[in-house]
Design a protein around this nucleic acid. Sequence first.
DNA 1: GTCTATAGCCCGATAGAC
DNA 2: GTCTATCGGGCTATAGAC
Lengths: 195, 195
Amino acid sequence: MSAVLDKLAMSPPARGREEILGRLFELFRETGYAGASMSDIARVTGLKAPSLYHHFPGGKAEMAEAVADSAADALGATVLAALDAPGERSERIGAMLDAVRELYENGRRPCVSASLMLGPTPDAVSRATGRLVRRWIDRLAGALVETGAGPEAARRAATDAIARIQGSLIVARALGDPTSFQEALDAVEPALSGT
Amino acid sequence: MSAVLDKLAMSPPARGREEILGRLFELFRETGYAGASMSDIARVTGLKAPSLYHHFPGGKAEMAEAVADSAADALGATVLAALDAPGERSERIGAMLDAVRELYENGRRPCVSASLMLGPTPDAVSRATGRLVRRWIDRLAGALVETGAGPEAARRAATDAIARIQGSLIVARALGDPTSFQEALDAVEPALSGT
DNA sequence: GTCTATAGCCCGATAGAC
DNA sequence: GTCTATCGGGCTATAGAC
């Protein structure tokens, strides 16, 4: 298992739903839904199965759903919030991309939504992931329109930027080298600024 | 399970390693490694577990490894072969992108390498996937250099194009709409032509 | 080269004590 | 809110007949 997860497994048990959720976030991020077993979950949280069912009566599916929702919250609080700051387009885009760099730790960590999307996943998780992506595209396109872009060009540019970010994370993981992520963000910045 | 896999499950049993491999390719593409159980594998191939162990003594791990290798073969025979055709850069890029469209069925089907990469996967599978991506980048960058690009710019452009393709597949899947894939290919074409 | 039958394990999940 | 103990079942894998 990954270094991040090993570290969690060594830590004292998680206290309270929020801390459990944070650890589940890291687990599903690395393994996806099918790849996370209940014993993995017990390992990273430091809790036994019955305690986990106390917090998430719906079991693994409810945990994944909660993680998908928390991913949407995290995106909103960081990446989307950066788009709302007042200022020029270039500042808002720059702030969003800084938040993206932090979210994915400069390309060294996968996207939890992408991990949860692959393979057989509970319907609620797929729907939450779709909503998250749609919201990101809409808010980014909205910021471009507010700063002078046409609606259709803005939608395309926003979708392309998010695809580049997600794709570069995959390439970075395949190559075992985060450079492609960093280069992708450097390429996305001027592309969004000049739409 | 997906329509593609249901259809395979209804078909007569697979005959010979090659046909089995083709069906495993489609299964792992949809479910990833951890998401595919032996009973899923038995279902789509029409064979019982002992027959599958006859062809793949190493079990599920060996099957996934064989699929990862066959993905590299398929990429070479279609996408990379298109890059080798004689002609102008624009023709070779266009031919590659047509092969990509076909490989991913215009954005309606996931990339088997990306599916196999996520989550806990046998080491040999991760390594095969890394080799495939590296080879794609190198061959695409090579074609750009042959037609006049500088080596470093070519490497960046090739990496970015592949990231856009992969990312747009993810976005397409999240949105349940292949449009983002089609638009990504339309954007990649001029980006590669003018490097 | 396919099958039936089965091994042994770990899966997700629960009862009930504290 | 955590645990020990345990359930039924599906998991990967194999023995051995045909």
